[in-house]
Amino acid sequence: MELEYMDIWCWLIPLSVGLICGFFGYLIGRGSNPKVDYESQIKELSQENEKAKNDLAKCEQKLAAGSSLNNGDYTVFDSAEAKKYIGKSVKLDDLTLVEGIGPKIRSLFHNYDIKTWKALAETSVAKCQEVLDSGGDRYKVHDPASWPMQAKMASEGKWKELARWQEEHKHGKL
């Protein structure tokens, strides 16, 4: 008979201990979880959102101010229209668009702080020759006579005229 009673106790004791531990675990866990305050979280996130919107507005203002400084009196630069006439993608104020100016000559002009089409358009041919002479003898073969004119067409967005002129005057010669 003792074996029969042992068999019940072998099941009853672990089951009761498990239930008691589960009950106490529930009570302890319930007390440690504070109630979540969703309203304060929503208010905090709304404030962060407003701050981000203000920062975005400031960045857009700076971008607009920077664009107006870089573009000077340009008409709106339309790279798609420029690509249509020039036949290749055109970047704003890329001096290599001018027939006869390559990357090395562009860097010479950048050394003289001539970095935009408008600045090159306002540069005299004599000044362009001075920039070329600063590069040494290897640049003596280049003729900068048409460069300010081409840069002016680019700065004014006259892509059709520029493409026609470059087609008629290969190698940038007048």
Rank of each mutant, 00 (worst) to 15 (best):
G22C: 13
L27G: 06
L97P: 03
G66L: 15
L174V: 07
V17L: 15
R106I: 08
K173W: 02
S155C: 07
D55W: 00
D78K: 12
Y26A: 11
I114G: 00
K88H: 09
E99Q: 14
S134P: 12
F24V: 13
K51M: 04
T123L: 01
K35V: 13
S89F: 03
E156N: 07
S32Y: 11
R106M: 15
V141G: 12
K104A: 15
E168D: 13
V76A: 14
S124I: 04
L120M: 12
Y139L: 05
S155T: 03
K43G: 04
E167N: 10
G25E: 05
G157T: 02
G100Y: 02
M6A: 15
I28E: 08
I8N: 05
I8W: 08
W147V: 02
L12F: 10
S16Q: 11
G102K: 08
K170V: 09
A145F: 07
S124V: 05
I8G: 03
W117Y: 11
V36H: 10
K83V: 02
L56T: 07
D113T: 06
W11L: 13
E168T: 14
A65Q: 13
L132M: 03
G100L: 00
E167S: 12
L162E: 01
L95P: 03
E44R: 09
G136A: 03
W11M: 10
D133Q: 09
M153W: 06
K152L: 09
C10N: 15
Y5I: 11
K140G: 01
K83T: 14
L132F: 02
K91W: 01
L27H: 08
E99F: 09
N54M: 04
S46C: 06
E156L: 13
E167Q: 10
S124Q: 06
E99N: 15
Q150N: 06
D137Y: 02
K83R: 10
E161K: 11
L95H: 05
P144F: 01
S79K: 05
Y112S: 08
Y85C: 08
Q61P: 00
P148G: 01
Y139G: 00
L56F: 02
M6Y: 13
E2D: 10
Y26K: 05
L19E: 09
G157N: 03
A163S: 15
A57V: 08
E99L: 07
T96I: 02
L69A: 07
G22K: 02
C21E: 07
G66D: 14
G136Y: 03
Y5K: 05
D93F: 01
K83I: 00
K91H: 06
E39A: 12
K58T: 13
K43H: 13
L19Y: 12
M1N: 03
K152E: 04
D113M: 05
D7T: 13
D93W: 04
Y26W: 06
K160Y: 00
E99T: 11
T75L: 11
E39G: 06
N54W: 02
R164I: 11
P103F: 02
L56P: 02
M1Y: 05
L56R: 07
N49S: 09
E2K: 01
S134L: 07
S146H: 03
Q150E: 08
H110E: 12
S124A: 04
V98L: 01
M1R: 10
L108D: 11
W147I: 03
P14W: 00
L12K: 11
